[in-house]
Amino acid sequence: MQVEMKDQINAVVGRYQTRRSAIMPALALVQESVDRLHGDVLKEVADVLEVPEIWVYEVATFYGMFNTEQVGKFHLQLCTNVSCMLAQAERLLQHLESQLHISKGGTTPDGLFTLSTVECLGSCDTAPVLMVNQDYHENLNEHRIDELLVQLKRQAAT
């Protein structure tokens, strides 16, 4: 781990009463610079924070936004919680699976897309919702998804 990263984490620690509380922000920081949060990274974070390794593991594996497995360039996270489900999210999931030729949780062979389902993204009024990396795509249907995929592929090519 880079020295700057360690400094950044240590700066975060100061904002909390206990070092344990800094695990989430520290993981979020580290995730920006690594492919995935694998065991060695978690160990290093634990060492910097001076907390037991298992605490970092618990947090990293609990939250969906921490990627312990490698994800593609675009992480497609489709909400399948109640509102989105009522708005046909499950049909969209099938559509995405058939378009990308992967199943839920998989990554395309070219490493561009990872498809996963998530619980409520907090945007029920615009259901169904898909989150691509940090961006929301709302009021979706099959046609808009096709457009989105084309756009993303083009973006990747440039």
């Binding site: 037991p52 605490w55 618990e58």
Partner: peptide
């Protein structure tokens, strides 16, 4: 000894010692 923890979530939750 902080060596045992609960990892993952919901249906996938499990106890581990690394």
């Amino acid at each position: 000894v902080e060596e045992i923890g609960l990892v993952n979530r919901g249906e996938h939750a499990e106890i581990t010692t690394l």
